[in-house]
Design a protein around this nucleic acid. Structure first.
Length: 490
RNA sequence: CGGGAUGUAGCGCAGCCUGGUAGCGCGUUCGCUUGGGGUGCGAAAGGUCGUGAGUUCGAAUCUCGCCAUCCCGACCA
């Protein structure tokens, strides 16, 4: 591994790509657009999964699993949905290969053509609602609150590790309800779960709001989202929760008998959050030295680097450190004691900074004699010497402090890069500098598209906390009742 | 799918213009050294130069085709 990461200020995109690879999160695979998630990266994803899964369970959801393949006829049933995903589908047409009669290798056996093509799921609404038809007869069968963890495939033109890959991992929640109100409530509840996850676990401040009709999920009546700001000022959609109305129930004929004895279509929601969050995690917090991981998601929260020359010295260091490590582990902290003699301490310091380990302890013979340990924090890169006595308690608090600090840092960054803009001239100038623009919009798709065409900025969301305020659209000058968030996005 | 670029050792690159025994750095292996911020020295292993054809006595180098990857657009969680 060569030293020196590209600088964020010089080439943000190259910095990101290099960091993801060098920190051992993921790498490109032999398959175009698909990535290999490496153990260190996957360990972070597993922590995300755990946190989210616990929240899903706490809100009454159960996990299930639906098939990878979607019959083409299913995808066709909901018109908008079909149109939205048709352009990016992987299609299975055959089920057998045979040896090439003209030579080496294998060829598709044309006799093994599927009667109906199968689509590799880009999302599972259709298979799931086709299944729900059999599960739902009465209002007593509702609500159905199901989530699945799986992979999906969207054949993207241009891909980037984590941010946009042809295959990605995610969870997709699919719920069915007896009433519109209940489904709307669920849509909001799950957006709230995402926001809590982003802020409490990822230390990533997010704006919550609704998408404009242009930006809505294909087949949804309403799409809610959380939007985060990356360090280059661009927006990243971090999670979405959709109110699907009765669209899928109608397309798949999912009806139930209501309490009043009437036949009604079920109301649906779906919500998803993907490995894209890994990209968000990297881009929101990390620096030119490497990853900066929030302690709650760091696979290794504390690394101990002993500085020794001989086995005897290592033994003395261990004797001092083991009790501290035991205390930390007893408090639920994941600790790595790196007594590997193959790498020198300086190398290890750089390596663990690259990997984003929140707290690093260094202890050598000097410390053994004075009964101290050097405590370095990744977020500020500061170091302090502390007595071993009470170190464990101090470190536990420090982890909380780091979690809070990186959240605050990201929030401060977002706030200082959010601009209220009232004129089109200012808009065009400001958008070049990145960040969120808070401006009036006349509510039309035409204006939204015109703004996008001219500036590449899209409406990220109509924030829930946007106050009613009369004004004029920044582009058309027509009346507007509230401000929306514009930004260039990933 | 349009525009641009690149494919040479595990990784990053030079060599190509001007054809003549394939090089450098990092990493790897071995030895010594060093050890509180990516130690230093020495030695070794490792490449059908993306692929197919052509030109030539001779091709990493010149010509043409193909494939792949990356960047910029359109599309997108």
């Amino acid at each position: 591994m060569s030293k020196g990461l590209p600088k964020r200020s010089e080439n943000y995109s190259e910095w990101y790509n290099e960091l993801v690879k060098r920190a051992d999160l993921a790498e490109n695979s032999a398959v175009r657009g698909c990535m290999v998630i490496k153990p260190y990266g996957f360990a972070i994803w597993e922590k995300m999964q755990r946190a989210l899964d616990d929240m899903f369970k706490a809100t009454g959801h159960q996990n299930a699993y639906f098939p990878l393949f979607v019959p083409k006829s299913f995808l066709e049933k909901e018109e908008e949905h079909a149109e939205g995903f048709a352009k990016e589908c992987a299609v299975v047409t055959h089920y057998r290969l045979k040896s090439n009669p003209d030579g080496k290798g294998l060829v598709v056996d044309e006799n093994a053509r599927l009667e109906e093509e199968l689509i590799v799921r880009p999302t599972s609404e259709t298979v799931i609602w086709n299944t729900y038809r059999n599960w739902i007869q009465s209002y007593r069968d509702l609500p159905i609150l199901i989530n699945q963890w799986c992979n999906v495939v969207r054949w993207e033109m241009r891909t980037r590790l984590f941010l946009r890959t042809a295959e990605f991992l995610w969870q997709e929640g699919h719920t069915a309800h007896a009433t519109r109100e209940e489904a709307i409530e669920e849509t909001a509840r799950m957006l709230g779960v995402y926001a809590t996850f982003a802020e409490d676990w990822m230390a990533l401040p997010v704006l919550q709001g609704a998408k404009t009709p242009n930006e809505r999920f294909a087949g949804a009546e309403d799409t809610l989202c959380i939007e985060a700001m990356m360090q280059d000022g661009k927006a990243l959609q971090a999670g979405t929760s959709h109110f699907l109305g009765q669209n899928f129930a109608r397309s798949f004929d999912v009806q139930f008998t209501s309490r009043e004895g009437k036949l009604e279509y079920a109301w649906a929601t779906s919500w998803g959050l993907s490995t894209r969050m890994m990209g968000a995690l990297v881009m929101a917090h990390s620096d030119d030295n490497g990853l900066v991981l929030p302690p709650k998601l760091a696979p290794i929260q504390v690394v101990v680097v002993p500085i020794f020359k001989t086995e005897e010295e290592l033994a003395k260091i261990s004797e001092k450190m083991v009790p501290v490590i035991d205390q930390l582990r007893a408090a639920g902290v994941s600790v790595k004691f790196d007594d590997d003699d193959n790498q020198r301490s300086g190398w290890k310091f750089a390596e663990y900074e690259l990997k984003g380990v929140p707290v690093r302890l260094a202890i050598g013979m000097r410390d053994v004699e004075s009964g101290t340990v050097e405590i370095a924090r990744r977020d500020t890169l500061s170091k302090e010497s502390k007595p071993l006595e009470g170190a464990a308690a101090h470190i536990t608090e420090l982890l909380d402090e780091i979690q809070a600090n990186i959240y605050k840092r990201a929030l401060d960054f977002r706030e200082s890069n959010t601009f209220v803009v009232d004129t089109w001239e200012d808009f065009k100038t400001q958008i070049e500098n990145g960040g969120f623009i808070v401006a009036h919009w006349d509510g039309t798709s035409e204006t939204e598209e015109a703004i996008k065409a001219e500036t590449k900025a899209t409406i990220r969301c109509i924030p829930f906390n946007s106050v009613e305020q009369a004004g004029n659209c920044v582009f058309s000058g027509k009346p507007s009742s509230k401000r929306v968030i514009f930004a260039r996005a990933y």
